[in-house]
Design a protein around this nucleic acid. Structure first.
Length: 108
DNA sequence: CTTGTGACTGTAC
DNA sequence: AGTACAGCCACAA
C-alpha cells in the first residue's frame, strides 16, 4: 500500500496516552499538510488489526468528529476519558491543554 | 478523465 | 462564539 498510509499509521501511533491530536496535525506528520481529510478517510478504512489509537485523533475544534453512528463518538470519548482526557460540558476537549505537542520538526 | 463524497481546516462575517 | 464558504487530497463510480 502507499507509503502515505504507513506514515499516517505511524503518526497516529506516536500520539502518547492521555493526549490528543488533530487531523491536520497527523496529516502534517504524514507529510500531507493539506491532507487532513485523507487522514480521516484512512482512519475510516483502517482495519482494527492496525491497532491504531484513532480515538486520540479529533478535529481542530477539539470535538470528536461525527461518524455514521453516534454510539462510536460516545465510545471514543469514553476511551479518552479512560486515559485521563477531560471533556467540557459541551463534550469538547481543551486542546490548549491536551493536544499532543509533537516535536517532529527536526528529521534532518 | 470528470463528478461526487468525506472521521478536515482556515478565513471571513 | 457560531455559521458560511472555499480549498484541500484520495478514492469509488
Amino acid at each position: 500500500m502507499a507509503q502515505y498510509y504507513s506514515d499516517i499509521y505511524t503518526a497516529v501511533r506516536c500520539i502518547p496516552e492521555g493526549r490528543v491530536a488533530t487531523y491536520g496535525q497527523i496529516a502534517r506528520l504524514a507529510g500531507r499538510p493539506n491532507g487532513a481529510r485523507q487522514v480521516g478517510y484512512v482512519l475510516a478504512n483502517a482495519s482494527p488489526e492496525q491497532a491504531l489509537p484513532w480515538h486520540r485523533v479529533i478535529n481542530a475544534k477539539g470535538e470528536v468528529s461525527a461518524r455514521a453512528h453516534v454510539d462510536y463518538e460516545d465510545y471514543q470519548r469514553m476511551l479518552l476519558e479512560e486515559e485521563g482526557v477531560q471533556f467540557d460540558l459541551r463534550g469538547r476537549v481543551n486542546l490548549k491543554h491536551y493536544q499532543w505537542q509533537d516535536s517532529d520538526d527536526k528529521e534532518a
